[in-house]
């Protein structure tokens, strides 16, 4: 069974952390992953940096730009992750934009992910219909779960459709925004979280964008299976480097 599915079955609420590979330093990747697991994180999204991250706010943009300057590439990331499964057990997801994956070759990319022990991919600009038509078979052959996004604007019909083709979890974007641009959730978001929870979807939902601390983590997970933290963790790395990951995670989970 895929580690994502297993985690979802066994775990209470899931805390997933996103970081940009190659940031703050090129070789921090493995260290960050190991420390996140040790600190009690349930799942990790490894960001493959891209020059033009359309769906990201300033924090993740800046970390991507720095990571690329540091020399991070798809090849380098795969080398760093080569032996990751010797020390890390939690689900690992690669999150990246489609162009670098397309240039690497989708088949070759998926094959490499399987070899390493990557469990899923999140590719925000790979549209659902193109995935279904052209890449689904390849992902499945290599045991990769493709995670789709929904937003407050996604129609009920489309949510049902996305649910029907998902087999891990649904990435629920908390509000109409790029990453990192929220500070706390209001009624609008809470109502949206409730509305989706009431749909009784086949797949659990994990909420991302705008979760930054214990309060927003609890708000989000009240109505969902888990929450994803990205920008807030990147900010922590910018300030503290890789040394105090444990205290960051503890501040979320309290």
């Amino acid at each position: 069974m895929n580690r994502i599915n297993k985690k979802i079955q066994e775990s209470k609420k899931i805390l997933s952390i996103y970081f940009t590979a190659g940031y703050p330093k090129t070789d921090d990747t493995v260290n960050i992953i190991q420390n996140l697991e040790k600190s009690g994180v349930d799942m990790i999204e490894i960001g493959l940096p891209f020059s033009d991250p359309l769906a990201d706010g300033p924090t993740i943009q800046a970390s991507s730009t720095q990571a690329l300057k540091n020399g991070m590439t798809t090849e380098v990331l795969f080398k760093q992750l080569k032996d990751i499964r010797e020390s890390v057990n939690i689900p690992l997801i690669i999150m990246g934009y489609f162009n670098p994956i397309l240039q690497y070759g989708v088949e070759a990319f998926c094959k490499k992910c399987e070899e390493i022990g990557i469990d899923g991919l999140i590719i925000p600009d790979l549209p659902v219909d193109v995935y279904n038509e052209k890449y689904k078979a390849t992902f499945e052959k290599h045991g990769l779960i493709n995670v789709f996004l929904i937003t407050p604007q996604t129609s009920v019909e489309r949510i049902r459709f996305i649910d029907s083709i998902s087999n891990g979890f649904i990435y629920m974007v908390s509000s109409a925004s790029v990453t990192g641009s929220q500070s706390g959730f209001g009624d609008e978001q809470t109502n949206y979280f409730k509305r989706i929870a009431d749909m009784n979807l086949k797949n659990p939902q994990i909420i991302g964008f705008g979760i930054s601390d214990n309060k927003t983590f609890l708000q989000a997970t009240q109505f969902s299976k888990g929450a994803i933290i990205g920008s807030a963790f990147i900010k922590h790395l910018t300030k503290e480097g890789v040394t105090k990951i444990n205290s960051f995670v503890k501040s979320i989970l309290k």
Binding site: L54, A55, F98, P124, D125, L126, P127, V128, V130, F148, L149, I150, T151, Q153, T154, S155, R158, V173, A176, S177, V178
Partner: peptide, 11 residues
């Protein structure tokens, strides 16, 4: 061509 856009832009 096509529309390779994040879900946020879909609507």
């Amino acid at each position: 061509g096509g529309a390779y856009i994040p879900e946020m832009l879909y609507p």
